[in-house]
Design a binder for these strands. Structure first.
Lengths: 242, 242
DNA sequence: ACCTGAACACCGTTCAAGT
DNA sequence: ACCTGAACACCGTTCAAGT
């Protein structure tokens, strides 16, 4: 016999490993995503993990790719909101919030510099592609805006895209450091985060400006239409907490 | 004899430990800041490290506090730039760039959630105070701006302060992930980063807007006055690299 | 009173031996 | 052809024994 392990089994086990790693990440935190811990939960031995992933760093990268693929999916869903270019960008801001409900914000921790350095190039490749897809999605909306005359022709598009992305990343980072900023609770911070992002878009003169249009109510509309399901879940979740 | 170890010796050793940790952080990266590695470099044994710091996490927190104290110092220097409120804010943006020249951007890695959780409360306290000092500095400039009528009376100050802080943090985070965004080199990204921050200030209607005033030349002016020394060093450093 | 370094636990990674 | 688990290296932390 040449091969006992069908490709199917291989793939199944890989998803099993990542599912478990994801569970550990969400329930116990990034520090506990160890080969040891995964091996405890998986129905085969520690050594076999290394037939599927070359190193712990590769597991983390695979996990991060999966998470970022989820970000792209939910952003796309947001982008499908029917409305003006800026409404759609607002819907993506909503999407980024919806994502944080399900995924705890431990991503920057996963992707420490050593992880990036030690991971296999294939994963870099995949991650880079994913990020280009996400930034491309944002970019396409901004391009539509220029076409529609809702954004000036001479807008520095790159700056706008990386800027909003950086602001979202940075805001999540502050929120993650709750121990340092205890004043930034989930509840108070979410509207502040939206406010910052919209002010930035105002800075780029993306029409209609937030003075002329109430993007808070757009946010509510997006939640109750495109993300109705996720929002209902979230409300249950909040109810359980009280 | 009651005490061989004078307080002076105690403090000296603590700074020695932190100096070494800082060196390791800058030259070898956050992953190498280990008790083991520090013990190799210090003229006393590993066990004695624990007379000075309760845990590795406490060393990291002490180190981070020191780094953030440096941020506050350089921000203050920036804030001393003589000019309008927005010019001074621009000078702080310059300061945040100057800081990244000397300090590699590994701070978020140091302060992983586990680190925050395991560190002693004293360090939380210190770090929280430091961040309040930094945010307070930003806040005082914004308050001056309102007094001077350069920022609308109804500006959401908290949002503005946390917003610019988050944007700076997020932009540094993207830059740190060079492996994912190879297009964001130091050289191309620095002006983009400044651009984003100024657009955001434009969004808050901080006068004079960047359409009316060339903040790139203010940036140059700040570098060649307040940060003349640091800038000269930096130019040498860049020359050496080529 | 303070320091040392051996000892233990934990984790990543490898690989000889087993099936 | 694939899996296992013992073995090794590395690191954080403790503490009995030494000075």
């Amino acid at each position: 016999m040449v091969r006992k392990l069908t490709p199917k089994t291989l793939l199944e086990r890989e998803t099993q490993i990542l599912d478990l790693a994801h569970d550990i990440l969400l329930t116990e935190g990034p520090a506990f995503v160890t080969m040891e811990r995964i091996a405890e939960l998986v129905p085969f031995s520690k050594g076999t993990l290394y037939n599927h992933f070359k190193s712990r760093e590769d597991v983390l990268m695979a996990l991060f790719c999966r998470i970022q693929a989820g970000v792209h999916a939910i952003f796309s869903k947001g982008a499908s909101y029917p409305g003006s270019s800026r409404d759609r960008y607002a819907a993506i801001i909503a999407a980024s919030e919806v994502r944080s409900w399900s995924e705890s914000d431990c991503c920057p921790q996963i992707i420490a510099p050593e992880v990036l350095e030690k991971a296999s190039p294939e994963y870099h490749q995949r991650l880079t592609e994913l990020h280009h897809k996400i930034l491309g999605l944002l970019s396409s909306i901004a391009t539509d805006a220029i076409e529609a005359g809702e954004l000036p022709r001479d807008t520095p598009l790159e700056e706008l895209i990386y800027g909003t992305w950086a602001l979202a990343v940075g805001a999540d980072e502050l929120h993650r450091q709750k121990m340092i900023y205890p004043e930034l609770t989930e509840e108070t911070f979410a509207p502040i985060r939206r406010g910052m992002l919209h002010r930035m878009l105002d800075g780029y003169q993306w029409q209609p400006l937030s003075l002329e249009r109430d993007y808070e109510s757009i946010h509510q509309k997006v939640l109750s239409t495109v993300f109705a399901e996720e929002w209902a879940e979230r409300k249950d979740q909040l109810k359980d907490e009280n």
